[in-house]
């Protein structure tokens, strides 16, 4: 069996000095190329789990491993978010002051690409989704 791409081990997250427990010891393993849907009632901790798996937040205890490297210690969270994970928000969160094209390029700024590389990558990305740009 191949190693999981993303793994959660005894993942716990609590708020308000431990009074509210959003996650109580989640164990999860996601293989490369697989699709996984997480469903549950409102307030059951879906968003919290996604935030932890996406490196947007840190767990109160437990581990999130990406390719067997622990997030936050072996992999820096900023690097993980900019190079290894894509997060599509429910509310999209586009930057209103930027054009649609510039919004596509914003994540590339995090990895310090040159302007030419960014434009090339953005065109390729738009073409992949049949989005014609000038």
């Amino acid at each position: 069996m191949t190693d999981p791409l993303l793994e959660a081990r005894d993942l716990r997250k609590s708020y308000d000095e431990g009074r509210i427990e959003a996650l109580r010891g989640v164990d999860l393993s996601i293989a490369a190329g697989s699709f996984l849907a997480i469903s549950g009632a409102s307030g059951s901790g879906k968003s919290t789990l996604l935030q932890l798996l996406g490196g947007l937040d840190s767990p109160s205890s437990g581990q999130v491993l990406f390719q067997n490297a622990e997030l936050g210690s072996s992999i820096d969270l900023d690097t993980y978010r900019s190079r290894h994970v894509g997060f599509i928000f429910q509310a999209f969160y586009l930057l209103p002051t930027l054009s649609a094209i510039e919004n596509v390029q914003v994540p590339m700024l995090a990895v310090n690409d040159g302007a030419n590389n960014r434009a090339q990558e953005q065109r390729a990305c738009c073409a992949r989704w049949a989005w014609k740009t000038a």
């Binding site: 996406g54 900023d78 690097t79 978010r81 900019s82 190079r83 969160y93 914003v106 994540p107 995090a110």
Partner: peptide, 9 residues
């Protein structure tokens, strides 16, 4: 927050 979520250091 969006910029940080996208990996901005």
């Amino acid at each position: 927050g969006i910029l940080r979520a996208l990996g901005w250091k």
